[in-house]
Amino acid sequence: MILLLLAAAAQHHAGHAPASPAPATERAGPPAPADHAADAVYDPSAMARARAAMTREHGGGTFSQVLVDRLEYRAVRGRDGYAWEADGWIGGDIHRFALATEGEGEFGHAPDEAEVQALYRRAIGPWFNAEAGVRQDLGRGGRRTHAVIGIDGLAPYWFDVSAQAFLSTRGELQTRLEASYDQRITQRLILQPAAEVTLAAQDVPELAVGAGVSEAELGLRLRYEIRREFAPYVGVHRERKFGAAARFARAEGERASATNWVAGVRFWF
């Protein structure tokens, strides 16, 4: 009885209307049965088929997405350039296979930089995925192959962030850090600041990569979501190479930094 009163008092304390009494003594629940009640009524093999489908249909779906985050024209001092960044995945809630690609170049020429990544991506928490796979460079800088490990996800305050480390077959180590933020101005008009930093463990002259902070990119893109899946944008893109990387670029007759107007489209399906 005392227990009962205590239980009732505890319930009352929690701020509710007094309820019918909670159990005074706890009894364990029964073990879950291993058989299925309907098997005794219907053909067990038909039930097994339906049960397998029912189980799969409630949480076991496979989904996919192709997101072309950037497909843009870049005006660089009279020269017409282009750039792209895209990611596609297929899989369930936890395990996914992803293909990612990005690159840039001038119209009429092969891309200066181009890469494709094939990744296994796994959810490791509510907000982040870990990924591992390979990266193949296809641009003018050389056809390197890298092993990739990385992490991507949603940081507090709604920042999309990712970090990837690359180890090439020649033993070169680089990391790439990215962050962006979608600032909704209205329901459809979105301003996206984005930053990307490349760090390297050593100089790679033919790729114009220098040890330490090699390169940084900053972007500000204003997009209008005509549909969620289709949004043209305009913006500005600035990139700058540092230290050895800047010297390598100048030696190639390129500038170490550039600021470009961009216009493009973001779409997904």
């Binding site: 629940g29 029964p30 073990p31 879950a32 049965p33 189980t55 799969r56 249909e57 409630h58 949480g59 076991g60 809630d93 959810a123 509510p126 907000w127 949603l154």
Partner: peptide, 22 residues
């Protein structure tokens, strides 16, 4: 964000045990 829904953190498709009553 991932559009995942479950009871006690386990989806039915993950082989969740039945809830048993006498």
């Amino acid at each position: 964000e991932r559009y995942m829904w479950s009871f006690d953190g386990v989806k039915l498709s993950e082989g969740a045990e039945p809830i048993a009553f006498r």
